[in-house]
Design a protein around this nucleic acid. Structure first.
Lengths: 178, 178
DNA sequence: GGTTAATATGAAACTCTTTGCATAAGCCCA
DNA sequence: TGGGCTTATGCAAAGAGTTTCATATTAACC
């Protein structure tokens, strides 16, 4: 149920098409939400049907037409209302940790490889968050002030990745040591 | 698709009923998975239908009968096979961070209260993980050795909560300072 | 004596998410 | 001129997860 508000939030900051949104999810909120393009399009249709979004078709040269969505007044109102309610609890689901939990089925080498794979993935994530962070720090100070809270969520994402990486590095050392 | 393997993992460590499982999810893997009792019962039925679980009805005095499930050979084989495959990517979904991302709809006081609520929740989580950790450290060393990898997942959970808490405390200081 | 909590299981309806398929135009490279 | 990539949108079906309701026993509490 929070996907719709994630969509409203990004469109509130700047209108865009389903395709735009998908990329913006990847570039700017991947540290706390992910969604496929099908989810975007379906959610956009629904929000449009419910009158929370306006849709402007934008013919483009050389590319298929774009449907640019933006918040209506009732969309903005719905978002404002939701933001002020206590957040639904987060559901944690980490398949990798199940695998470690069942790790007596793994040889030491297999465990080490699995941890190494996770380490690589989390290092890549950290890099992409640090890049995002650079972009924020290079933006003008008015924007930085306006989206200060949004920026803090990115800093949490960065810290979370550092915690993961430090844990995985320690695991590798201990698995290596035998 | 990982719920079934989480169920198999816990039943591999020790057989139990749906009710048992639900509590064991809460007590011992809540740092990386959560599920409702309905999910348990449905998954147990399915796994039983597919021949991955045995079921032994255990009449009890003073309480309704228990259906105690345990892994069949093909259940153990399915688990072993899955554990050795690369883990499906984790999906991150944190409604609270969407709310902060849309935080220009929040007053400073509202933001502070929201962060404080999260801080309280994460402190409670940390406490419960630390209790679990105590139980592990007080268990006999043979068990500790056998479930060393499982224990490491708990330590990651603890570190993750500490990161969250440190972030939230910093946020409160900065929001307080005005 | 009535209420609430814990133990114990399950059906049904519903929503949300994922996966696979389909379309279509333009661009770049060989 | 054919193959693959990016932009751009969408449907259908299956799978996963949530919510609501239902049942039944015991024990503790007021």
């Amino acid at each position: 149920m929070s996907l719709r508000y994630a969509v409203l939030t990004l469109l509130d900051i700047e209108p865009g098409s389903g395709y735009d949104l998908k990329r913006r999810f990847e570039r700017s909120v991947s540290h706390f939400w992910s969604a496929s393009h099908q989810q975007m399009y379906r959610e956009l249709h629904r929000l449009h049907d419910e009158g929370l979004l306006d849709c402007a078709e934008q013919p483009q040269e050389g590319k298929p037409d774009k449907k640019v969505y933006s918040l209506t007044d009732s969309g903005r109102e719905a978002l404002r209302e939701w933001v002020q309610r206590p957040a639904p609890a987060q559901k944690i689901r980490e398949p990798f940790l199940i695998q470690l939990f069942a790790g007596h089925h793994l040889s030491r080498d297999q465990a080490r490889d699995a941890v190494q794979r996770q380490l690589d993935e989390h290092r890549a994530l950290l890099d992409s968050y640090l890049e995002q962070n650079e972009r924020v720090l290079n933006s003008d100070s008015e924007l930085q002030e306006r989206y200060w809270l949004a920026h803090q969520t990115l800093l949490l994402g960065i810290e979370a990745e550092r915690t993961w990486i430090a844990w995985a590095e320690r695991m590798l050392r201990e698995l290596e040591r035998g």
